[in-house]
Write a protein that binds this DNA or RNA. Structure first.
Lengths: 148, 148
DNA sequence: CTAGATGCAAACAGTTTGCGTCACT
DNA sequence: AGTGACGCAAACTGTTTGCATCTAG
């Protein structure tokens, strides 16, 4: 979608100031494998900028997520959520208000593994999240789009 | 799988003492719709047992999750996790150690909505979590099985 | 020049733990 | 009777905020 580009342009497209801290945080994240936590990102960034503040790392991760420059592994709802619905179902998750709505399994083509999962991973079940904008948020927000 | 049953039997099957608090917490959760947080469950339970402690609610939610009597909406990893992998992919999630491994989109039959999602929900993307036991945990645990 | 970014410390929210007492089995 | 559950308060972890200073545009 976007041609290959440098960090300044990327920030400009998202209307963000291209600061040194931001660049190092962003490049650190994209260079990492796995699914790093803010704390781990902070550690790695400090190797480049020892004086950086943890708050700056948090603020910028949030900024990147909000602008769509980065994505989080799964939307977190601040606290643990218990699932009272015992029937097989999936979830509709709103990326704005983070509301979760159940979605019957029958509304989705059956999800099946095409390939064996790697190296002895024993599958127990498959959970599907349909991510998007709920009706309520869609109506009040003709404005800001947001990636997920 | 299980015949309809009462709370005492349910606890017995999971080797848990059937206390009054436990019963009220469990029945409160299963009577709720949506995806309640511990705080909300606490509020509701206090309507029945005003003297109950928040710690008891937390301890028992944890107990229910660990025993498989209840399930959580999505495994939470304690902290926010950033996704550096920009390619379309899904996740293999271990229910024991909570490790997350990327799983290429091609390893799964394409996931498609069969029905229109309800009431003007605008779908942006579909995220699939394959839940199970990773090889590492499987080897060291011939023992305790656990539901997810 | 000015809006917005940084760094620090303090505040917060959510969750867990230690421990004395009480209740289920 | 003994093991484990409860209730309370204190501790902890992860994250956000207020504010003074600095910097990109």
């Amino acid at each position: 979608m976007f041609p290959s580009t440098n960090f300044r342009e990327l920030c400009h497209r998202h209307q963000l100031a291209a600061t040194h801290q931001r660049q190092v945080i962003y490049e650190t994240v994209t260079s990492l494998s796995g699914h790093p936590s803010p704390e781990l990102i902070y550690e790695k960034v400090r190797e480049k900028i020892p004086s950086i503040s943890l708050a700056t790392v948090y603020k910028n991760i949030r900024t990147f997520l909000d602008s769509g420059m980065l994505r989080e592994v799964s939307l977190h709802h601040g606290s643990l959520r218990v699932e009272p619905n015992q029937r097989p179902h999936h979830h509709l998750v709103c990326i704005h208000c983070k509301s979760i709505t159940d979605f019957d399994e029958a509304g989705l083509d059956p999800v099946r593994l095409r390939a064996k999962p790697p190296r002895g991973f024993q599958v127990q079940r498959i959970a599907v999240d349909v991510l998007g904008i709920c009706a309520k948020c869609a109506s009040k927000a003709a404005h800001k789009p947001r990636k997920v």
